[in-house]
């Protein structure tokens, strides 16, 4: 376990123990929870919407959660629990908005979905920019840093919450894996096989919103995890969601833990925002994947 401070393997002083148990381990654990949540949300949304580009960040779900958190930050800063609740609400509303816009009488096509995601994302970004301009300078600094993804604010409460959300979301989405496999062929075909399409949709959207809301409330917007991880996993294990969902959770956790290790150590004792690292790794990797296929 690397970190800004070098720690011996055995016989820690009380202070070193405090660094390890109060700061480093909660942060590593939070990174794992956030990574798992985002990757599972990405895997679920991609299968449900039959769209390889469906990702919490691109669909505006992350921005919905970010706006919810910002409002909680602004209006209910005295209640710590307001942040995750508002983030979940924001993520849910953004998901519903994108879905409603993308769905037409003829069904849903790829272009409409991506376009709706872009519209919701940019609209929510401008609302966020407007609000941060109105906030005073001291609050602004912590918020803009947080927008880029920042795991340094790992509190034990936040860690438990993210852990709970990651587990629940993974179980929810994994429970629909068989139905999602059928829906990848087409919603109508799936319905013929006895899949309750609207129920699956509700559970997957709910699970993804929970996962994204909890991770955004704890660590801001960490991009590319939900996009890149399920794609890599599908290249390895194939497209059976019964494998893709759990393996995405594990790989997402590993990816964000590694990215955060880079963020914590490269310019120590200073720190980089983890969202910048995941994007820096994720974007070229995604281009490489696109060219390979």
């Amino acid at each position: 376990m690397l970190g800004a401070e070098r720690l011996p393997l055995l016989s820690l002083s009380p202070e070193q123990a405090s660094i390890l148990y109060d700061i480093r381990l909660p942060r590593v654990f939070l990174a794992a929870c956030v990574g798992a949540s985002l990757a599972v949300a990405g895997a679920g949304l991609q299968s449900l919407l039959r769209n390889p580009l469906a990702e919490p960040y691109l669909l505006g779900v992350s921005n919905g959660a970010a706006l919810g958190t910002l409002l909680a930050f602004w209006m209910f800063s005295m209640f710590e629990f307001a942040r995750p609740i508002m983030a979940f609400a924001g993520a849910g509303l953004a998901t519903i908005a994108v879905y409603r816009m993308a769905k037409s009488r003829a069904g849903m096509n790829v272009e409409r979905l991506v376009l709706s995601g872009v519209i919701v994302t940019t609209f929510l970004s401008s609302v966020i920019v407007m609000l941060t301009t109105l906030l005073d300078a001291a609050k602004l600094r912590s918020f803009t840093f947080w927008l880029l993804g920042d795991l340094s604010q790992a509190t034990s409460g936040g860690v438990y919450l993210s852990f709970g959300a990651a587990i629940v979301a993974t179980v929810l989405i994994a429970s629909q894996a068989r139905a999602l496999n059928l829906m990848m062929i087409g919603e109508r075909d799936a319905a013929d096989f006895g899949v309750e399409v609207s129920r699956v949709r509700f559970i997957v959207f709910g699970g993804a919103s929970l996962a994204v809301g909890a991770s955004v409330a704890a660590s801001g917007s960490v991009g590319y995890v939900g996009l890149i991880v399920p794609h890599v996993i599908r290249m390895i294990v194939g497209s059976d969601n019964r494998l893709v969902v759990p393996f995405s959770a594990i790989a997402g956790a590993i990816f964000v833990v590694l990215a955060d290790t880079i963020a914590r150590t490269t310019i120590a004792p200073r720190e980089l925002p983890v969202g910048a690292i995941t994007a820096l790794i994720g974007a070229p990797l995604f281009i490489w994947l696109l060219r390979k296929n």
């Binding site: 800004a4 405090s18 340094s152």
Partner: peptide, 15 residues
Amino acid sequence: VPTAYPKISKETALS
């Protein structure tokens, strides 16, 4: 520490 107003590692701050 380089720069004027750095974000500092909590581990370093504690130690």
